[in-house]
Design a protein around this nucleic acid. Structure first.
Lengths: 178, 178
DNA sequence: ACGGACATGTAACACGTTACATGATTAA
DNA sequence: TTAATCATGTAACGTGTTACATGTCCGT
């Protein structure tokens, strides 16, 4: 999923400026994808060049003109085409899991702290996702629910298995000390 | 987590060639990270240049010399340093979820098929992960278990909520047709 | 007085993938 | 004979991040 398609999709919900798109990407769905200004602005420029979006400049006092983008009919067609393509496999990107794989090389106390932090992270992400229950659309609710299900499972797993990895790590280090 | 650190970590388990590292990355943990030859070979070259690994060339008949890499003491230190750094946030990368967010733009039958495929994907990933229960180390078992927990949750969510998104999509399209 | 929100944009950089280049061996 | 496995490596390309550049308004 590239930024261009993402911007096009967001614009299919309504007109927005680059800045506003970024704000939307900082909402609850930031857990699934995000983008920086450095990618959004060039993406909007390219989309405009391809006539997939229109740009209206609004003069503002003391600020750069606000550029409001609207998706064009051609843009809607293109979006649908992009969305019909086979999605790539879902994947978990986790530095944490890589570190865990090499846990035996690290102090047990450090591992314990890491797991504790990750538990906190998942708990707060989950709280945030679950707390704002009502969604604009059924689609958003579906994606939302998916996030809650997965984060909840990760959280429960970490809580239930924390002792295992830390215990094992301590034991391995006791052996080395002998 | 960059490829250099990943290669160093794998070499901490035992000597290997670039080709063998790639094979290991195609094992059960490919769900959490992977790498192509185009990144592994340059990474090993850089690691050798920094004296973090040693390279022994084995002459072979009718093939390029096999280069077997060993982690050096300096490499082990460096690996631990890397692993002690704060891991970035875990994240789900899912084109599928993005498509679902825009489900109302697509034919209900297509959405249903997509969800069906994703269910199959998760089911086979889960089968694969769970079937090979025994792990070399407690760390590997922990990571393994995490994967099972998360994939299981995703699978159950999709199975339980498939009707919601497809039903909603059909209803929305019925409205448009009116 | 200071930081944060608003507002856009570019350039350098990092990091990785894909395709290309080469070529023997072995199993179906 | 065809494809897969073994084995390494480079170059082009894609894609996105970070840092830089600029400047006002508003709340504390």
């Amino acid at each position: 999923m590239n930024i261009k398609t993402l911007c096009l999709g967001i614009l299919s919900f309504g007109d927005a400026s680059g800045y506003e798109i970024k704000k939307q990407l900082e909402g609850p769905f930031r857990h699934f994808y995000d983008a920086s200004f450095g990618s959004i602005y060039p993406a909007l420029g390219k989309l405009t060049g391809e006539n997939l979006v229109d740009c209206t400049e609004l003069a503002q006092q003391g600020r750069p003109d606000k550029k409001v983008y609207s998706i064009t009919p051609k843009g809607r067609l293109d979006l649908v085409q992009q969305l019909l393509e086979r999605p790539s496999q879902d994947r978990i990107r986790s530095d944490f899991l890589v570190i865990m794989l090499f846990a035996e090389l690290l102090p047990a106390a450090h591992i314990d702290e890491l797991v504790g932090q990750r538990i906190e992270d998942y708990r707060s992400s989950l709280d945030e996702l679950c707390s704002q229950g009502k969604d604009d659309t059924a689609s958003a609710a579906f994606v939302h629910g998916f996030g809650c299900a997965v984060y909840g499972a990760a959280l429960r797993y970490l809580e239930d298995n924390r002792h295992r990895i830390v215990g094992e790590s301590l034991r391995a280090q006791a052996e080395v000390a002998e």
